[in-house]
Design a protein around this nucleic acid. Structure first.
Lengths: 109, 109
DNA sequence: TCTATTAATCGTAATATTGCAATATAATTA
DNA sequence: TAATTATATTGCAATATTACGATTAATAGA
């Protein structure tokens, strides 16, 4: 198999899992942190700063873009990446709602 | 390759990515939601309610336990699972710190 | 136009994940 | 002790992910 059975879960569950998957790699965490600190960033910068090949960085950027977490605008020869403002807010809400559902310790454990 | 280069990232980045990976599957999201709503839950309940085989549920529970998000205590023949209170707080802090680093829209995008 | 420069895509190898049947383990009960 | 119940583990097939060299595409400047 190796194929997630998305059809048996709610859209909400699938969406949250997809967002989490986008954050589930240290390179993508590092890329997002870099963008947040510098406000924007260019693929070439990341290649220099993280120790990964250009193709690998580009692939991670694509995943972040597909997940809607970042957006890129062509800036001459390079591409300027930044956080997608609306979707970042939605991400915060989505995760917040999920985490806040916890009502404190149970009696049994 | 197919092997994440964890050595080039900070512990913080690797830890956050690991936690996100634990949440990066709809079944595990569903399991956690179920536990949060019911306060506790037993493997057999999940097998009945989600549409996955017992072996699969048990595997997902193991991953959540390994990530420290849940804990299980033996309750007779069955095992009572619940959220790990301290680690859940840490998770909230960790994610919160990460998400709050975003300082609003950049000028370029 | 030719040539850098930058980023995306393709192809591929290594490894990880998902899901399940079958089996094993552990605890209760007859 | 034997049967029952509940969960964990094993083994395996299908698929996904990670990483990178090589190549391609697109823009800027000489």
């Amino acid at each position: 198999m190796g194929l997630t059975k998305t059809e048996i879960f709610t859209d909400e569950q699938n969406q949250l899992a997809t967002l989490m998957k986008a954050l589930a790699h240290p390179a993508r965490v590092a890329i997002l942190q870099r963008i947040m600190v510098a406000n924007t960033c260019i693929c070439g910068d990341l290649v220099g700063e993280l120790g990964l090949a250009q193709a690998t960085i580009s692939q991670h950027l694509k995943e972040l873009k597909t997940a809607g977490l970042i957006q890129g605008t062509i800036e001459g020869v390079s591409v300027c990446y930044c956080i997608h403002p609306q979707n970042w807010k939605l991400l915060e809400q989505h995760i917040g709602t999920f985490l806040k559902a916890y009502k404190g310790p149970a009696t049994c454990c």
